[in-house]
């Protein structure tokens, strides 16, 4: 199949950047989207041109590296699919395809389609952790976890932190990502000691990073390659209100609450 690509090209974080039109000819419809870009890059290099920079690693939908906005939709048109797992048969020969980086002030472009997502790491570091004692592990069944809670926590834990929710959101808000972390950790007994501190600190950090606010339009849920539900955002809102009501967040080592 033959395609006309419109790709964001930007030399480095200082460069203004612009869209560039590139013809991609003779692409197999069995190729993945990233393999299509590999083919385009080989041709660009053969002609002495700079290849298109894009993030990728596992290429099997589990690492969260790939990050392309394809015709305005993060990870392209297939629901619940990462860019690396998207196949060219989802497109028609002769089609125009726009390929852009995640767009958010908090995710500055480093080069072409590669953005700096360390804002997510800082949100995670602000509260997305649990305290564990070192030493030998306790018996696996010594802490009972209700099945329902375990299931909900697992639904949230499938988040791969790719940032598609931010890219899709009209306000570049990371609420789906944050709520997945808050849900995963707060639903389980292991996450209870930091329950209040976690949500307060993460929501604070989100603002410091320059992300936008949620307006309940659910674009994130539609774009999420792991099909994470906005139900988690509601849970995070509840968690936030509960934590905000408690003037002092519990201190470590003082007998808990």
């Amino acid at each position: 199949m033959d395609l006309t690509l419109h790709v964001w090209r930007q030399k480095n974080s200082k460069d203004a950047g612009k869209m560039e039109t590139i013809e991609a000819k003779g692409i197999s419809e069995n190729a993945s989207f990233l393999e299509m870009l590999d083919t385009v890059n080989e041709n660009l290099q053969k002609n002495g041109k700079e290849p298109i920079a894009f993030d990728h690693d596992c290429r099997e939908g589990i690492c969260g590296s790939c990050s392309l906005v394809i015709n305005g939709e993060p990870h392209g048109p297939e629901y619940g699919t990462t860019s690396c797992q998207l196949h060219m048969r989802s497109f028609k020969s002769g089609q125009n395809i726009f390929i852009e980086p995640w767009r958010a002030k908090a995710f500055p472009v480093l080069k072409d389609l590669v953005v700096d997502r360390s804002a997510f790491d800082r949100i995670q570091q602000a509260g997305g952790f649990i305290s564990v004692n070192t030493g030998s592990p306790q018996d696996a069944n010594s802490i009972p976890v209700p099945k329902q809670d375990a299931d909900k926590a697992f639904d949230a834990a499938v988040c791969i932190g790719c940032g598609a929710c931010v890219a899709a959101c009209k306000n570049a808000s990371p609420m789906l990502f944050m709520s997945a972390k808050v849900s995963q950790l707060s639903l389980l007994p292991q996450g209870k000691p930091e329950r209040e501190r976690r949500v307060l600190a993460m929501v604070d950090q989100m603002k410091k990073e320059g992300f936008g606010n949620c307006t309940n339009q659910y674009e994130c849920e539609a774009a999420c390659p792991k099909e994470i539900s906005v139900e988690h955002i509601a849970r995070m809102n509840r968690e936030y209100f509960r934590a905000a009501l408690r003037e002092e967040t519990p201190k470590e080592g003082h007998g808990g609450e």
Partner: peptide, 17 residues
């Protein structure tokens, strides 16, 4: 919210909003 996305998409799309 506006300032959280200083550079707009060249190809805007709305999935379900």
């Amino acid at each position: 919210n506006r300032s959280a996305r200083p550079v707009k998409y060249a190809h805007e799309a709305t999935i379900q909003a």
